[in-house]
Write a protein that binds this DNA or RNA. Structure first.
Lengths: 336, 336
DNA sequence: GTGAAAGCGCTAACAT
DNA sequence: ATGTTAGCGCTTTCAC
């Protein structure tokens, strides 16, 4: 088999304890033997066996992140935030990707297995109470990112506020008949953004008009796609009267809306304004006004709270709600 | 501490061996005791310790994938391909993200540590010979994806062919003075695509004109960015005579080119045509003609060859070269 | 400063 | 069908 601590010990004519100490930078190893050990290890390309270390130490120095990868750009930025904060620590990040929602439970189970990692960060996944109970039975920390449940520390962006900000921005720019192209309301973020939409109208004293709202019935990606945005926008345009602006619950949907506009010959923002949500790279390119989520911060804080929880498992549960930000570009520009 | 196989054994009044067998679906456990064991395990929320299992089995059932995450959309699709093929197997995928190229060596070392995984798939990373030697000293399989080195199995897309196809497409559509906006030639894919560019010209009997070429000097992302594409295109337009088309070595650069066109008042494709490379989502939205890489297939094959190598470590090294595909959209449309 | 030895939690012969 | 036992490769007391 592979070379072990025993082989090194034998060749260096010391005990395995000394070899182990040398590798763990234990102070009480004479620099002479330390040097000899390293030299031999180097020569044999020796590396400690991670499983054996974990077993003996009862520690893996690994953090699992479970990330649904449908929201392509969003999670990339979040991962960047994770890495920034983790790099330089003793810890290492491993990502369990979830492509199809059906894979989530299996990945959860794997990530939580004892001896795999110290705990996990779960992204953009809404837990049922059953799942939450199951998870909370584990001793390892679980941090929720971009979602919420009372049992776990969570870091999320305030979607209601974000929805409200989007619509308020449109109102302040001078638009009045504002439509909503929303993803499937089975998705909590969509639901929250819609609540924000209504709240903004209410604050402005504008009555809610259901003919100005279309909801995606898609269940695969919950309507968070260009195609859905395109179709739903066409539906909305067909049914709505005097509409002069649209708030779409994501940037990709908004891009679909833009395509729909082009197709029916509407200029944006001259004939109809548009707000997206997320601020993905595409948005800047398309000149799309949108609501930016602090994705890097999300990642940073996730690691932060993970470490906190690791230190003090009994600390009170913390919920952080970050504020999104309006990014005004072309599609919501004031006219004249 | 946490509950172990011993606790279960004691409570079920059997030996640990029986408990182990029950969990590993060994046939020779009476269904009565099996049931009892499961019941007790369930009650205590028992899970085997992964480190202990790996140590005893000498097997982790884990595959490491090292993925540089700068090329945002590309790797997403590849991961999808990986997952598709891996899901349902005994194996599990863990991703070691590389955000900053400087993190790569550390991640490599971690992923290759014995007891961590069965081996790794390394994405879009060109190995120096020293690195390759170092890696090849490990017994674990290493599969190269989107890059190439003679020592390892590799799966890549033929970038020379792709470059040639892009330019040939432009020529066939009727363009003659074709410029090249290339990423830093330190990046092997850029180099290969440029070779393709030259080859296409040569086959068409058109002499190579260096004033039609600009290369990014960026070293961070090697010029694969919208900003670089924008600036380099402006440079090219300033120096080139009678240019009627541009081939950019990536879609993001091409988007930058599009912005540059708008800025100097050039219509595309009426005044100048454009080809990108990759076929990211943005490309379809922008109506950008481009070269599509079979990203899903790349992921699928990576797993395929990983398993093959695991089965037969001494099999001959395989190099697969996939063919890209022309996607003709608006920016290379024939006029009139 | 170094060694001996007892685990860590599990698997897998080898018995019975 | 089940138990005994010897590892797997390492860490960590406790001696000296």
């Amino acid at each position: 088999m592979s070379i072990t601590i025993y082989d090194i010990a034998e060749e260096a004519d010391v005990s395995i304890a000394t070899v182990s100490r040398a590798f763990n930078n234990h102070p009480r190893v004479s620099s002479k033997t330390r040097k000899r050990i390293f030299e031999i290890a180097e020569r044999h390309n020796y590396q400690p066996n991670a499983s054996a270390q974990s077993l003996a130490r009862k520690n893996t120095y690994l953090i699992s992140a479970i990330i649904p990868m449908m929201a392509n750009y969003f999670f990339l930025e979040v991962i960047r935030g994770l890495q920034d904060r983790i790099f330089g620590s003793e810890f290492d990040l491993t990502i369990y990707p979830v492509i199809d929602p059906g894979q989530a439970p299996a990945q959860l189970e794997r990530a939580m297995q004892r001896g795999r990692s110290e705990g996990m960060m779960l992204f953009s996944t809404w837990l049922t109470d059953d799942q939450a109970d199951w998870l909370s039975a584990f001793p390892q920390p679980v941090i929720l990112v971009d979602s919420h449940h009372e049992l776990f520390d969570s870091i999320a962006v305030d979607n209601r506020k974000g929805g409200e900000m989007a619509v308020t921005h449109l109102l302040q720019t001078g638009f009045r008949r504002i439509g909503l192209v929303t993803a499937n309301l089975a998705a909590v973020p969509a639901r929250d953004r819609k609540i924000g939409y209504k709240r903004a109208l209410q604050k402005a004293g504008i009555p809610f008009d259901p003919t100005l709202v279309v909801e995606s019935k898609d269940v695969v990606v919950h309507g968070f796609s260009e195609e859905c945005g395109y179709e739903d926008t066409l539906r909305l345009l067909a049914q709505a009267q005097d509409i002069d602006a649209i708030f779409a619950t994501s940037d990709v949907q908004a891009l679909g809306a833009l395509r729909a506009f082009r197709e029916v010959g509407l200029r944006c923002p001259e004939d109809i304004a548009l707000m997206g949500y997320d601020d993905v790279k595409l948005a800047a390119f398309a000149g799309l006004s949108t609501i930016r989520q602090p994705m890097n911060t999300l990642g940073n804080l996730a690691v932060e709270y993970f470490f906190k929880r690791l230190e003090d498992p009994n600390a009170e549960v913390t919920h952080i709600s970050l504020r999104p930000e309006v990014v005004a570009r072309n599609t919501s520009a004031k006219l004249g």
